[in-house]
Amino acid sequence: MGSFTSFSDFIQMGTHGLYVWLSYGIALVIFIYNIVSAYLLKRQFFINAKRRLRREQGTI
């Protein structure tokens, strides 16, 4: 498989498995954090905005 002799060789990355997978794990976590935090920002905005709009329309 690719430049590895076996799947377990791929998982172990020679002797550097811990470092390689830790790096890719860090990257994945930060990518997910970026998407989730942006999405939460969007959701919070629309929740507040809808509430505000309803209140304004109710008073007019």
């Binding site: 498989m1 690719g2 430049s3 590895f4 990355m13 020679g14 470092y19 390689v20 890719y24």
Partner: peptide, 14 residues
């Protein structure tokens, strides 16, 4: 990068 790129001759897979 993870599967198909060759390992570095000095640093190996890191």
């Amino acid at each position: 990068g993870l599967v198909f790129a060759p390992a570095d001759y000095q640093q190996g897979n890191s």
